[in-house]
């Protein structure tokens, strides 16, 4: 009794039951954006090219959507492609290699990260509520760092502080936000 050879990949007709329709893939892609992004960031911490790699990952996932079978683990599939894209990116960038975690650590991350809670919606709600509670000067610093993505030095000059001092402040604000989010999630305070 022979099991037939594997079919070639690529989008198959609607009669093939195990292939997700495009709408389904779009929904899965949408649902997993934060997770994919987080994973790519985890492998490329502090690298501003991470978002390009996320986009490439999305592109590849989309292109290879015919290979994905509904009911299998989308996250695992997406992460394996994301990792490949990170490696691919590094290969292309080999000349100005950045600091990169050793492979063992990356393997550990690849193993652990998918198991963390994937409920980013409620964390994001909590974050929004916590941001609102920050005092103005702190919020401005966050705006500068994340919303404008401008160099800290520029802002340091603008507000008349040292870059080192701003770093310390940023660190403190992040700690405060993290604590606030945890508290909000526990008490449900951030929820309407």
């Amino acid at each position: 009794m022979e099991i037939p050879d594997s079919e070639n990949g690529g989008p198959r007709g609607p009669s093939a039951p195990d292939v997700a329709p495009d709408s389904e893939i779009v929904a899965l892609l949408t649902d997993h954006q934060v997770a994919i992004r987080l994973y790519v960031h985890s492998l490329m911490p502090g690298d501003s090219s991470a978002l390009d790699v996320v986009q490439q990952t999305n592109a590849t996932l989309w292109q290879k959507r015919g290979d994905f079978e509904l009911g299998t683990n989308f996250k695992a599939w997406a992460f394996s492609i994301a990792r490949y894209e990170v490696l691919n990116y590094r290969k292309r960038q080999a000349r100005d290699a950045r600091l990169v975690f050793n492979e063992d650590l990356e393997n550990v991350i690849a193993e652990e990260l998918p198991n963390r809670s994937g409920d980013f919606d409620s964390r994001r709600e909590a974050l929004a509520a916590c941001l609102a509670k920050l005092k103005d000067s702190d919020r401005n610093l966050i705006v500068h760092r994340y919303f404008k993505r401008a160099p800290l030095a520029e802002y340091a000059e603008q507000v008349g502080r040292s870059v080192g001092g701003l770093k310390v402040t940023l660190h403190r604000i992040r700690n405060a936000l993290q604590k606030c989010i945890q508290q909000n999630l526990l008490t449900g305070e951030a929820r309407p």
Binding site: R37, L38, L113, R124, L127, I181
Partner: peptide, 21 residues
């Protein structure tokens, strides 16, 4: 690593929040 993941989640969410806003 847990600290790293948590911080990573915070900064990633900040980035995403920033884009949305």
């Amino acid at each position: 690593r847990r600290d790293y993941y948590e911080r990573l989640e915070l900064t990633t969410l900040l980035e995403i929040q920033a884009e949305a806003e």
